[in-house]
């Protein structure tokens, strides 16, 4: 490459003008975000707690796997979900219930802290009582608060006695 005073000067000034041009280009390229009639002017931010500018759980895709929910009325306490859960975050305990043929789901705890939202438990649920909601708001200040209980609670002895009396009277009626 030939170098002379002239060419060096030309390179010097052309690089200065290139610098100035790139600066002007950079500054003007961001202008449409400030003032323009196009889409660029609009903000893309979803302002979360505000339901207007952000998506609410209802607007999420239908197969979103959010926090788990169990309809305990339909739950049979079969423990399939507990078996299949890879992180063992579901805890089910059954007791004999009012009707000897049906189980009483005393404890149905889902630990959302360790749940990995894989959806296996929902797939194996025969009565389809366990579902993924689209709900995601579950932040808590302590780990035990992340455990969600759906169980009916332990049956007390008085309740059991009452059921026994009821059952006996029913049997007597049937006879």
């Amino acid at each position: 490459m030939k170098t002379s005073v002239l060419s060096t000067t030309r390179v010097y000034f052309s690089s200065i003008s290139a610098g100035v041009r790139s600066l002007v280009q950079a500054c003007s390229s961001i202008l449409p975000y400030l003032w323009s009639a196009t889409e660029l002017r609009k903000e893309v931010t979803e302002q979360y707690p505000d339901p207007v500018s952000s998506r609410t759980p209802d607007e999420l895709p239908s197969r979103t796997r959010g926090l788990l929910e169990n309809d305990i009325q339909r739950c049979t306490g079969c423990k399939e979900c507990e078996e299949v859960c890879p992180v063992k975050c579901i805890k089910v305990e059954n007791e004999p219930g009012e009707d000897p043929g049906k189980t009483w789901v005393a404890v149905f705890d889902i630990d959302h802290a360790s749940c990995i939202f894989c959806g296996l438990c929902v797939e194996v649920c025969a009565p389809q009582s366990l579902i993924h909601t689209r709900e995601y708001e579950g932040a808590a200040l302590a780990l035990p608060q992340l455990v969600t209980s759906f169980g009916r609670g332990r049956v007390t002895d008085e309740q059991r006695e009452k059921w026994d009396i009821m059952r006996r009277s029913q049997e007597a009626e049937n006879l």
Binding site: A113, C115, Y136
Partner: peptide
């Protein structure tokens, strides 16, 4: 101080 559930949690979460 604060635990956020999810695997992974959504940005809203």
């Amino acid at each position: 101080d604060v635990y956020v559930p999810g695997c992974p949690p959504r940005p809203e979460a």
